[in-house]
Every structure is written in C-alpha cells, then in structure tokens.
Nucleic acid binder design. Structure first.
Lengths: 342, 342
DNA sequence: TTGTACGCGTTATCAT
DNA sequence: ATGATAACGCGTACAA
C-alpha cells in the first residue's frame, strides 16, 4: 500500500504538514517547486478516506437501477455519468429487480455517498424516504415512490406516450387493442396503463385485452402467447417497454405470425436496432440520456444548495417514431379486399 | 446530516464507546438489548469514512469500462455485480472511449476503492501499471495492456472466435471475405484480426478486404459503405463486434442489399435481438456475464490473499451460433442457377 | 467483559 | 506565509 502520507512529504521538504495541505488546496506557499518534486518523488496521493472524514463529503453519487443490461437504464447511467463533473464519481448499484438487494444496498450506501439517484423497484416502498432521514439528497429517475412529491424527480410523460400509442392504433382502425403492461406497482407501469385506458375510453373501446406483466422479455413473451390463444385475439398490441416488446416479437416470430399483416405492434422505448427488425418497429421514444443528465444536474444542485432546497420535478417529452410495424386490422383488410374482389 | 456518532450511543446507554464498537463488531457485550434500542432510537449509522480511515479498506471495487451502453459491457458489469458479495459494492466508471477521462478517473480512484477491474481503452497505455504502484490490485477484463501478463485477466478466446467465423464463411464457398475490424490497438481488435488472417492464410486467401474501424456503430456503417463502393465488392463480411455489426446492417438496409442473398454477414458478440433481425443474425457468442463474474472472483481472491498473489489468467470460450445471415456467395449462386437453367 | 487513550491522514484554527 | 495542534469518528492495544 502506498502508505506515504502528507507528513512524509512535509518532512522531505522540511516544512510543516499545514504548508503541504495549503499547497494542495491551491494557496500560495513558499517552496512550491520543492513540494511539487517531493510529491512526485515520493509518489504521494492524498488519502480520500481522511478527506472524507474531515469534510463529511465523499464526492460520490450513487445511482440505483433495477437492471443495467436494460438499454434504457444503461443510457440513464451514461447520461448521469456525463453530467457528474470532474470532482465527483458514480457508484452504481444494480438491484437486479430484487427488493432485498435494493434494501441492503440502500443501507450500505449511507456514509459512502453524498446523494442517491434512484429508480425504485416499486412505488410502495418506504426505503428511500427513510433513507433521506439521514440527510442524503435523493433524486428519483423514471420511477418514484408513493411520497415521491417530496423529492426531486425526472420522469417521462408516460400517460401522453401511452395515449399516443393507443390513439395511433385506433387511428389505423383497430378495435381490439391489447396492452402488455408493466407492473401497476411501478410508476411507468401504472401511468402507461392509465394512458392506454384513457385513449380507449375516449374511443368507446373496452380494455378486455389488458394484461399486467413484468417488464421482462420472458413476461412479454408469455403475455403475447396468452393473447394469441384467445378465441377472439386482438389485432393490435401496445407493449409497455422495450424488453417486453422483444419478448412479444419473439412469440410472434415463433408462431410465424407476420407483422403488421396479421397483427400490429407498437412499443414503448426505442431500440438501437428497431430499424433492423422485420418490419422496422414503430415505437414511443424518449431521451433516456437526457433523463439521466437532468437527474444528475438536479442532484448537483441539491448538493450545492444544501439539503433544504425545495424538490423540483422534471418531465421528459415523448414522441412517436413511425416505422413499419403497424397497419390496418386484419378484419378491415378482409373487408377491403372483398370489396375490391367484386 | 445524521451527525449522531458512536459516542452519542455510548452516552445514551451509559457505557464507553469501546463497548458499542465491540457490539457492532459482533462481540458479546453486556447490554446488548439497550444498545440495540439506543441505536434505533438515535438512528445511528457507523461512519464509513471513519472506518475506511481506520482500516485502510473501503469495501468498494471499481469497474472501468469504455461504454456502458454497449450491451456487452453492461453484461460484464452485471456479472461483476452479481459476484461482488454482500460486503462490497461497485463503483462504475464509464470512460466514454475518452483517454482523458480514463486517466482522470484512475487518479481519482486511489483511496476510494480496494481494487480496480478494468477494460483499458488501448493496449499501449501505462496508466494501469502505474496505478498498481500504489498497491491496488488490478484485474483486466476483455482487454489488457502491454504488460498485461503481470496482472490477472479474464479474456475471450478472440483468435478462435475470429477463425471460427472466417472458416464458416470459407466453408460456404466465399473467397472475397471482408473483415470490419476493431482498432488494432485494443486486445480484441488485434486478436480477432489475427484469427481472421490466420484462417484466410490457411485457405490461401488474401486479406485485401480488411478494414480497421473503431468498434462503433457509425464506424461499422462507414466501413460497410466503403466496402460496397469497391469495384470488386466482397461477398461476405465478418464484423468484429456487436455495434459495428449493427452499423453494417444499417448500411446494407439503406442500400436495399439483401442478406444473405447478396452478401453474407457474421458478427462477433451475440445480441438480444439477433433472432428478430431479418434474417436472423449468425454470430460468434460468448458469456459476457461470466467474464464479469470471473473478473470479480479473481479480484476478491486478490483482496483476500493479499496483493502478492500471483496473477491468474482466465479465458472464456466462444461458440458459433448459426442463424440465417450467411449463405453461398453471389457468384456461385449465379453459376448454380445457370446450371439449373439449362 | 469493560474503559482509557491513542492513532488513522487530513484540514482548519489560532498564534506567530 | 508558516507552524503547532485540535478535531473528524472509529477501532483496538493495553490495562483493569
């Protein structure tokens, strides 16, 4: 271990530790040149631990996400990392959708970080607000907890996005529109379901094709299968996140069901490869990186202004990216072709 | 700030700080019940900073990757996170392919972490070995530096993978086989190029279709474009990583070139959605998560056994996942159809 | 088992 | 501008 301390440097130069400390803090001192040399020769690095103890700051911001392999969260992290600045670093916690790991991580975070940016697993947990008792600022990203209004957050306009998607399907003439939803215990799960139902209601359509799933690829696959097994299968599907969209597409592929001829599909969250899929996938897109950077900016503001700054709530816009996975419903195609046939 | 210290707890219970400290360390003490209560009532949390200073340990392992939005590195991180254990956490550094950020991060890491798992940007850097002067264990993952033998590492069998891919193309009858390579300054870039060239040589083929690119989607796109513009275009392409494969496919898609009829393509690294692409993508696959967990296990071994344990080198196997993006070369198809035509 | 006191490496205060 | 020293919160050797 590089156990060379500020005292060693001081001895080497022949001054007191205070002088070295001042030099390191940017003050003007007498023997700057000699100090510089001594530091290099001795290979001295200030101890972060000692500084933390003295200052009460760690220069580290934690970011807690459910699944780092989900491209959406990876982009969030990237955005946050890009906005963290030169004097801070990021501590990543990947909870792997496990409540237990999330709780344990939260308890371990105390004292190691100056603040926490997190996407909580579900809305009905109290960990975060309990956590903030210790004076650590919290910024929610993509998801909030029940008492989320008390903390800053960066969300997506989920309701609008889901309405956009559903309206788009309705506009194509679909009546039997399914939704493969995320868990209603999560913010995006709930809000997107709300938007879907609102759009259906406006068009006087029922929500008998609503399935609550789990935001996973396997969940999307299973949900799509159960939809297809119905006597009266839907003609269009809105999948509530990227992973479930992939799962649903796999289910369709396995059954040889063609998109959009036999069924239309629109997903929430764009994918790097959406254009490469056959057919290119139509989606509701948003800027995940922006969400991450905004969350970090809010965090930095809290860190600088003190813990008593009022919470701020930011909302990132969504937009429909039209590609080729949606068309007119099967039935109406039949009708049309019949007409033509006459 | 929760400024309640061990002293506060001691006063509250009426014992000395040493007793509280012992209780926290798992020793048997007299007033356990009262101590438990006091801790809860006061909301006491031990200061990680003070513990770090005392013990010289932080309980944090850094993991440094070039791009967290690359699914491959995300899986590495996930694997590492899964193997980190209960008493440690992960500090993520995303260098964004910037040498400057990598260096700065490395220097900031000292004193904040017990060890560093990293995928260095290029092989010709000295940062890591310089870094290890401070006694911090280093484990390389996926990539190494020049003097990488001195440190533990977890690599992929890149040469074998590239040979597998190239041989596969050769086996389909291709003669004009291109490679869109990664930077030769990186471990996987260099090794995969080696494997490609070895396979070509064995088959008495030349490497005039070799292009060195940069592992990015844009780079893959550009490389594929330049390949297509040649008078004597290749009939098959081996793309050296996932992102460049996506870029190459985009280029093909934009030009309406069909796979595998007009050109065959095989990529290195599997993709979640490889089956969803039209046609399903044939790739060289490996277990990125395993690489991550193995790296973490090596790190933990170093941490436990002391810094003077000899370095270990692990190699993860690769395999060819055959789907539908490779076929016979255009020319031979023509020939065959001519024959049939007669 | 318990208490006292020192040290971990740094910064800040107070004299000089 | 510089030096001596207290303090940050904790763990532990030593003594009891």
């Amino acid at each position: 271990m590089s156990t060379v301390t500020i005292t060693d440097v001081a001895k080497r130069v022949g001054v007191s530790v205070a002088t070295i400390s001042r030099y390191l803090s940017g003050f003007t001192v007498r023997n700057e040149e000699k100090i510089r040399e001594a530091i290099i020769e001795l290979n001295y690095r200030p101890s972060a631990a000692a500084r933390n103890l003295k200052s009460g700051r760690t220069g580290i911001v934690a970011i807690v996400v459910p699944d780092i392999t989900n491209p959406f969260f990876a982009s969030i992290v990237e955005g946050a990392e890009g906005a963290v600045g030169d004097d801070r670093m990021i501590l990543l916690v990947n909870t792997g959708d496990s409540r237990e790991r999330e709780e344990k991580a939260l308890s371990q975070l105390f004292g190691r970080v100056d603040g926490v940016i997190m996407a909580p697993l579900t809305e009905d947990e109290q960990g975060p607000s309990f956590f903030s008792q210790f004076g650590l600022p919290i910024v929610f990203v993509d998801r909030v907890t029940q008492d989320g209004e008390k903390f800053s957050s960066v969300l997506t306009d989920n309701v609008k996005g889901a309405q956009l998607a559903t309206d788009y399907l309705i506009g194509h003439g679909h009546k039997k529109i399914a939704m493969i939803s995320g868990p209603l215990s999560t913010t995006p799960g709930k809000r997107r379901a709300d938007g879907y139902r609102a759009a259906l209601k406006k068009a006087n359509l029922g929500d008998q094709y609503f399935i609550e799933s789990d935001f996973s690829e396997a969940g999307g696959y299973a949900a799509m299968c159960s939809l297809l097994e119905r006597d009266d299968a839907p003609t269009a599907v809105f999948t509530a996140n990227n992973l479930m969209t992939i799962g649903a597409l796999h289910a369709l592929g396995d059954r040889g069901i063609s998109v959009p001829e036999q069924i239309s599909i629109i997903g929430f969250d764009d994918l790097e490869f959406a254009e490469l899929i056959n057919p290119p996938l139509t989606v509701i897109a948003r800027d995940a990186r922006l969400q991450g950077s905004q969350a970090m900016e809010l965090m930095i503001k809290h860190l600088n202004d003190g813990v008593h700054t009022p919470p701020e709530h930011s909302m990132v816009d969504v937009q429909l990216v039209e590609r080729g996975s949606c068309g007119a419903p099967r039935e109406s195609q039949k009708v049309r072709s019949n007409k033509i046939g006459r």
